[in-house]
Nucleic acid binder design. Sequence first.
DNA 1: TTTATTATTGCAACATAGTTGCAATAAATT
DNA 2: AATTTATTGCAACTATGTTGCAATAATAAA
Lengths: 126, 126
Amino acid sequence: MGIIRKTRSIEILLTEFKNSGYAISAIELTKRLDEKLNKTTVYRVLDKLEDDGILHSFLDKKGIKWYAKCNNCTHTKHFDAHPHFQCIRCGKVDCLTIDIHIPKIPNREITVSQILIQGKCESCSI
Amino acid sequence: MGIIRKTRSIEILLTEFKNSGYAISAIELTKRLDEKLNKTTVYRVLDKLEDDGILHSFLDKKGIKWYAKCNNCTHTKHFDAHPHFQCIRCGKVDCLTIDIHIPKIPNREITVSQILIQGKCESCSI
DNA sequence: TTTATTATTGCAACATAGTTGCAATAAATT
DNA sequence: AATTTATTGCAACTATGTTGCAATAATAAA
Ligand SMILES: [Mn+2]
Ligand SMILES: [Mn+2]
Ligand SMILES: [Zn+2]
Ligand SMILES: [Zn+2]
């Protein structure tokens, strides 16, 4: 179930994403908003924003949960099957717009695929 | 640091992988070997077997750690950058031999990529 | 505007996966 | 057989995330 009431918590979390073109980990958000919001609230609001197609989530190499803005998703349809990139030096994570082709595999029905690419980002590869 | 002494624990864990063509999660191993080995030992031995290029590890959709046999890896070189497949019905996970091409991305140095494909396996898609 | 309804929040306690320190044990070497 | 030290088991811990429940606040109704 998604958002029903426009609350302070939701405003605060949306602002975090408005001011960032990158993905943000749930942990980072709980720390960053520690004075303002309880960590349970952070997790619950993120969950609702995802339900509503406002954010999407994925796990990084260590199994940590990250969130990023969706582009044209709704609460009924999510279109965020894109790969993600994590910089091994600065740790920044972002969404990639490239499309990676997954070939058919004999005798298997492919539903989804998660792709996490690692390397050095623009700033870190100089 | 890898294996130095050939112990009972190592034999037991190697046997588990000898009898399975699939990947096995660390959790599953701790449960399966609960009577024989302490969970700390299981985690430590898996870690060493990975160091030695005998096993390789990866995380599934939920961030759970899985291990599978390596093919031609050594303690100096790991060649296990292949994609993995997890059946959404029976939960089985295995290594795929297909090669998925990751295109170059402007201004970024790609090091590795993790690909987890989900769908129904041979048995489950009938 | 006031009152009523109920979604949302904060808190504490819990769950799960994996890790660490340390004394006891058991491989390997002498 | 004695010595060395890698490995193990245990308990306690860490980290990330979840749950139950009473208090609070957003919205609807009066
Ligand atoms: Mn994304
Ligand atoms: Mn594999
Ligand atoms: Zn970077
Ligand atoms: Zn299956």
